[in-house]
Design a binder for these strands. Structure first.
Length: 399
DNA sequence: AATCCACAGGAATGGTTGGCAG
DNA sequence: CTGCCAACCATTCCTGTGGATT
């Protein structure tokens, strides 16, 4: 039994040749549809080669439009070129969601400059001084990339510290590239930080369906065996993703899932049908992911709803096909469920607020009941299979 | 037609929390 | 570290609405 599971993984895939190419972290040799941005960023950074400090750059655009990929790509090319000409250029990529304070950012920079050394427990100023002396001594030209910079606490201090270094340095320089997908983020910065960070600004527009198609085709060539994927399947995945705000990551996830489905079915090739099914799965995954991070009370509401629905399926009401639940019924069930979990339930008013919120998230659908129901109430449906919701929520600790 | 029921959702208000200047 | 303000969660109270009931 278990051996069978392992064995299927030994067997060579008929579909994939290198599925990593569909991973969001994969940086391909060329980035289609981003030639302009690549050129612009390269031009901005190029002065570093002649020893001048390039402008700090602030990049923004929605998720999955290639901000990180372009930055990493340009940085890699720049480092390669600099190396050939023996110019000490170094790029350091930092994800601020993980390294979310000034101290952690500086630690990360120090880690990159002193491989193998441990900076745990050292003060911020100490680390800062070490960085400065190393940069100065080697004449290093650093480019620090702060990805998801909106997640960084103490942005002004961090930006200020890194930027101030340039005044204290005799040799070398430190430049900053900030990346954000929050379009309103820039306005929330104080004036000084804004002018420092946004010396140069770049906006990445979302991809349209045609651009997404080209991206997918390129990746598919690496990821799939020859002829293992229908061109129409790629076009469909691109179209879906374009509708979904032009997110290339979503498009890639879609194609990956489609490939996995085809493999599970032992199909010869990935078809439009696989993409359609994959979309359901991907969307479901997104929703289930979302459920995991919902406020506790909303999770309990969902749990109560899922239980109600699956309980009714067993009884199989005669006549009416779909199981329908009114908000009053659900409120009772919710109160009961909450008490069972040892959580005090909220008032009916807030319960209704939660229902509306879950509705706007698209997890449930609450529509006016109309005829056949007493009074002015809403009927509530779950937009995803109840058993999946149960599986996710019952696996969690809701108390 | 009048009344009742079962809720929807706005407004005022109070307790918590979390970021931030001092 | 402290105190403050804002944002957020939650309750209470309230008015409105639409169909069922009498």
């Amino acid at each position: 039994m278990i051996e069978d599971v392992f064995r299927t993984h030994l067997k060579e895939s008929k579909i994939f040749s290198n599925r990593d190419a569909l991973s969001p972290h994969f940086v391909p040799d060329t980035l289609p549809n981003r030639e302009r941005q690549i050129e612009e960023l390269s031009r901005t950074l190029a002065p570093i080669l002649s020893g001048r400090k390039p402008e700090n750059v602030f990049i923004y655009g929605k998720t999955g439009v290639g901000k990180t990929a372009v930055t990493r790509y340009v940085l890699r090319k720049l480092e390669d070129f600099a190396k050939e000409h023996e110019i000490p250029v170094k790029g350091i990529y930092i994800n601020c969601r993980i390294h979310d304070s000034r101290h952690r950012v500086l630690m990360k920079v120090a880690d990159a400059l002193f491989p193998g050394e441990n900076f745990l427990g050292l003060s911020t100023t100490h680390i800062y001084d070490r960085i400065l002396s190393r940069v100065s001594e080697k004449g290093l030209r650093l480019i620090v990339v702060l990805d998801e910079i909106d997640k960084l606490k103490g942005i002004s201090e961090t930006v200020y510290a890194l930027n101030r270094a340039n005044d204290e340095l005799e040799r070398g320089s430190i430049s900053i590239i900030g990346i954000s997908n929050n379009l309103t983020f820039k306005e929330s910065l104080d004036a000084r930080t804004k002018s420092t960070l946004c010396q140069k600004e770049m906006i990445f527009p979302p991809y349209n369906a045609e651009e997404l198609r080209r991206i997918l085709e390129q990746r598919a060539q690496i990821a799939f065996k020859k002829g293992a994927v229908d061109p129409s399947a790629i076009a469909l995945a691109a179209a879906y993703a374009a509708k979904q705000s032009g997110d290339a990551r979503y498009a890639l996830a879609l194609l990956l899932r489609a490939g996995e489905l085809a493999e599970e079915e032992n199909a010869e090739r990935v078809t439009e049908d696989h993409v359609r099914k994959a979309r359901e799965r991907v969307e479901e995954d997104i929703v289930l992911d979302m459920i995991k991070t919902l406020p506790q009370q909303e999770q309990i509401v969902l749990l109560a709803l899922a239980r109600l629905i699956s309980a009714r399926k067993g009884i199989r009401k005669l006549g009416e096909g779909e199981t329908v639940i009114t908000s009053g019924e659900l409120f009772e069930a919710y109160v009961k469920t909450a008490k069972e979990l040892g959580v005090s339930p909220v008032s009916d008013r807030w319960f209704r607020e939660y229902i509306s919120e879950l509705d706007t998230y698209g997890i449930i659908r609450a529509t006016p009941a109309g005829k056949g129901f007493r009074g002015n109430t809403r009927v509530i449906r779950l937009n995803i299979p109840a058993d999946k919701v149960l599986k996710v929520l019952e696996g969690m600790d809701l108390a």
